[in-house]
């Protein structure tokens, strides 16, 4: 079953600026992989027996919370040292166009 892929749309959703050639390459590779992956649709038996949301923690953990306690934050200078651009304690990016 060939799979339809709007690769430009997917690349845009994933914020990947790819060339047309790159996109075409990925589109055909994804087609092959997805054709194989589509085998998940062959799962036999009652689909209700294995609801999607059934896959919770393998040890059945629930309610893993923390108490409302303040812990020390990181040193700003150390954090901003990794930033490609910063100014006056802020991270700086080119202007955002979309909201």
């Amino acid at each position: 079953m060939p799979v339809e892929i709007d690769i430009a749309h997917v690349a845009k959703l994933a914020r990947l600026d790819l060339t047309p050639d790159e996109m075409e390459g990925y589109r055909s590779q994804l087609g092959v992989i997805l054709e194989h992956a589509a085998k998940v649709q062959s799962l036999e038996g009652d689909p209700e027996a294995h609801p999607e949301g059934d896959v919770t923690h393998p040890l059945g953990l629930v309610n893993a919370f923390r108490d409302d306690e303040v812990r020390p934050s990181l040193d700003r200078a150390e954090v901003l040292a990794s930033a490609p651009e910063s100014r006056d304690g802020y991270y700086v990016v080119p202007p955002a166009l979309e909201i």
Partner: peptide, 17 residues
């Protein structure tokens, strides 16, 4: 995370990984 909820602080001081 354990960072304080606090307003009007210096930028990027209540931050953690």
């Amino acid at each position: 995370c354990g960072c304080a909820v606090s307003f009007g602080e210096e930028p990027n001081t209540n931050v953690c990984p």
